[in-house]
Simulated assay, not measured.
Amino acid sequence: MPKVGMKAIRQAQLIHATLTVIDRVGLADASLALIAREAGVSTGIVSHYFGDKNGLLDACMRQILLDLYRAVEHHRSVAADDPQAQIRAIIDGNFDDSQIAGPVLKTWLAFWSSSLHQPDLQRLQRINDRRLHSNLTAQFARALPIDAARAAGASMAALIDGLWLRMTLAPQPMAQGLLDARQLCYQNLALWLSGPAT
């Protein structure tokens, strides 16, 4: 009989192993056998908890998205309750340490690519996109007319995603890329809040 709590422990162990293997060999070569070996379990255990590789990738993305949600909520909870501070907190949450660790970055890229062909992953991607845009728009709407707030939300969401992708692929040190990405987002935010866009 399995120990109480073993399921959660095993699942976390296998998700961590998956991130590690994707970081090392890429998604295409991240076989269940390699993941099982990394976790120190049999492939049967992986199949038992996740079914197949797609189920495991889905679980990994759900964990990363949960970590992203928690990071954004943490940054927002310690920020002042004004639109600029709250938007900066959303920016900071999206570039949080939990989201820029090497294995997570490569899994995000694999997720984005795979979501083009897998409906379950595509649905997760849409939820994440809508949450980011909605949160940004709601904060911009506290300072701008609604049409401008929607445009500002869409602009900032696209900037966050674009900078994140460029930072991931760039050869420069991660710390500098992170600093530059945040600064560009802050500058864009200041432009939106300083007056009407032309």
Score class of each variant (00 low, 15 high):
195 G>I: 03
45 I>E: 15
137 T>E: 11
162 G>R: 06
28 A>K: 12
139 Q>K: 07
168 T>W: 03
7 K>Y: 00
3 K>S: 13
96 D>E: 10
102 G>M: 10
89 A>H: 06
155 S>R: 04
166 R>M: 11
6 M>C: 05
65 L>Y: 01
114 S>M: 08
83 P>Q: 08
127 I>A: 08
153 G>P: 10
177 G>Q: 04
149 A>K: 00
151 A>W: 02
86 Q>T: 10
86 Q>M: 15
167 M>W: 01
57 L>K: 07
146 I>S: 12
2 P>V: 07
77 S>D: 14
177 G>R: 06
175 A>S: 13
147 D>I: 06
28 A>M: 01
121 L>T: 09
51 G>L: 01
82 D>L: 06
106 K>I: 01
12 A>Y: 03
183 Q>H: 10
111 F>G: 13
120 D>E: 13
99 Q>F: 07
147 D>F: 00
2 P>K: 09
157 A>L: 02
21 V>D: 13
91 I>P: 07
22 I>H: 01
124 L>H: 11
191 L>C: 12
54 N>G: 07
53 K>R: 15
150 R>Q: 11
1 M>R: 13
111 F>D: 06
4 V>M: 01
176 Q>N: 07
160 I>W: 02
183 Q>F: 05
124 L>T: 00
35 I>A: 09
195 G>A: 01
131 R>M: 13
30 A>K: 06
88 R>V: 06
55 G>S: 07
45 I>P: 00
197 A>N: 03
173 P>G: 07
140 F>L: 11
107 T>D: 00
168 T>R: 06
19 L>M: 10
71 A>M: 04
94 N>W: 12
196 P>W: 04
45 I>M: 14
101 A>D: 14
27 L>W: 15
39 A>Y: 06
69 Y>T: 15
63 Q>P: 00
112 W>D: 08
60 C>N: 00
47 S>F: 03
133 H>P: 00
134 S>L: 02
38 E>N: 09
80 A>C: 08
150 R>C: 07
139 Q>G: 02
18 T>R: 05
131 R>W: 12
108 W>R: 15
65 L>I: 08
140 F>W: 08
180 D>T: 12
56 L>R: 03
34 L>R: 15
131 R>L: 13
175 A>V: 10
52 D>G: 14
92 D>H: 14
141 A>M: 01
73 E>A: 14
94 N>T: 08
97 D>Q: 14
82 D>E: 15
134 S>D: 11
85 A>K: 07
36 A>V: 08
80 A>Y: 02
